[in-house]
Design a protein around this nucleic acid. Sequence first.
DNA 1: GCGACAG
DNA 2: ATCTTGTCGC
Length: 218
Amino acid sequence: MDATALYGEQEALATQDALRSRLILGNGPTAPATVAGLDVAYHEDGVRLAAAVVVLDAADLRVRDTAVVRGEAAFPYVPGLFAFREVPALLEALGKLTVRPDVLVCDGHGLAHPRRFGLACHLGVLTGLSSYGVGKTPLVGTWEQPDDRRGARADLVDAGETVGAVLRTRQGVKPVFVSVGHRMDLDGACALTLRLASRFRLPETTRLADRACRDALR
DNA sequence: GCGACAG
DNA sequence: ATCTTGTCGC
């Protein structure tokens, strides 16, 4: 609203452009040994927050490591610049891990973003790790409703290009929006998401991280 | 100009 | 994101 916020947005857009040049598409890990879920919860003041990262063994989905940090939002919520709000706290949490995750499953979008650089891309580039996003609601794109059976998917298309997939993780439940971040391929991201979401709509990684940061806020 | 708009 | 447990419906 004010000049400060507008200037911040210009800076953020420039940073987004610079980081995007380092984004690597495709070539996700064939058999990741560990998978991490990341999420952030906010205090009612909209400023104080808790960020959590939970690392699971990709084979049996058991928790291998958990890191939670408390802090403050680094940026106001602006669609398209969402990463600037949560990335600092998430990076701090990632830094506390003792088990290195092979893939980051982010709560938000990757390539399915107005400038093709959502939270998942941002975190992937900054960490150098493979990453992708699983969003609960769309940010950009159009799609045909996927069949009502677990595993069904449809292309998420924006400005003529496929930026992700609309994936049904549970029959009879709204699909999720999957898009690659860094060093990841869409098929691998969808396959992993289905393995992580065998019982609930959202991946187990996201659910565990959500619980961890919520608990840390109380 | 008017909505829509990840979390 | 958050306000919010139980309750209605298939």
